[in-house]
């Protein structure tokens, strides 16, 4: 008597709408995301008020670690004739040509090694060890060793990390870093050569705590081979 009958309601929530939204969001993030390229050294770029955005393509990034080690990364316009692969192949040919002009121990690379080089991200080992490095990087079982080498954590003490750089001021006897930079200008890629001339072709990325002495060496090296214009990568300054 007097018992109120409570209607049984289903607790089932329709998730279809929710699923639609999440799929849309997912699509958005998948399309916009650019993955962070793996870099051999983690650096915190200095804050700056400059609002100029970093160029997207056609530049070479010079990564400088606080210890003064140097790596290079190519960023080419993939839509143009010069894909990253093609550019890197041409670069390796050119740099070995320049190297062999002044060194008794000539370097040469097998087609397989060249192919491996064309697929690398950042690179930075002395040219004399490049062959060995590429052999390691080309083999899937040993590629982690190559990564470690690039980060300076190789178990083999003979493995040198970073492109050799010194205080050389003689344009006619370039060090290896200068050879690489020269080679970049001398490939047939005129878009990149033009960008280097304008100053947008070379971007230096370094940690804010890197000593000026270290940075000065890199800049001096570029100045010696008449690359007076370049850009510095910075982060947006909060506040101001």
């Amino acid at each position: 008597m007097g018992r109120v009958k409570i209607a049984r309601k289903s607790t089932f929530i329709d998730m279809t709408a929710m699923s639609d939204v999440t799929v849309l969001l997912l699509t958005f993030f998948m399309l916009t995301s650019t993955f962070l390229a793996k870099e051999p050294a983690t650096v915190v770029t200095p804050p700056s008020v400059s609002e100029e955005k970093v160029q997207e393509t056609n530049f070479v990034q010079v990564l400088v670690s606080p210890e003064g080690k140097v790596w290079l990364t190519m960023n080419n316009d993939t839509s143009a004739n010069w894909s990253n692969e093609r550019m890197r192949m041409a670069l390796l040919d050119k740099v070995s040509e320049i190297y062999n002009e002044s060194h008794k121990n000539k370097v040469s690379f097998t087609p397989q090694q060249k192919l491996t080089f064309s697929k690398l991200g950042a690179f930075g080992v002395p040219l004399s060890q490049m062959g060995e490095f590429l052999d390691l990087a080309g083999n899937t079982t040993t590629s982690t060793q190559a990564d470690k080498w690039l980060q300076g954590e190789s178990e083999n003490p003979k493995h040198i990390t970073g492109i050799p750089i010194d205080d050389n001021k003689d344009e006619n006897r370039p060090n290896e870093f200068q050879m690489w930079m020269k080679a970049l200008r001398q490939t047939d890629n005129e878009i990149l050569a033009g960008a280097i001339k304008d100053g947008t072709g070379v971007a230096i990325k370094a940690d804010q705590n890197t000593s000026y002495g270290t940075m000065h060496r890199v800049m001096d090296n570029l100045q010696t081979i008449h690359m007076n214009k370049f850009t510095l990568l910075t982060a947006l300054k909060a506040g101001e």
Binding site: L26, T34, E52, L222, T231
Partner: peptide, 20 residues
Amino acid sequence: FMLCTTMIKSQTLNIALPSN
């Protein structure tokens, strides 16, 4: 994807050193 993506692009500063 949210964690992997980098939304903020790096800024640049142009410098021109005097010629040697």
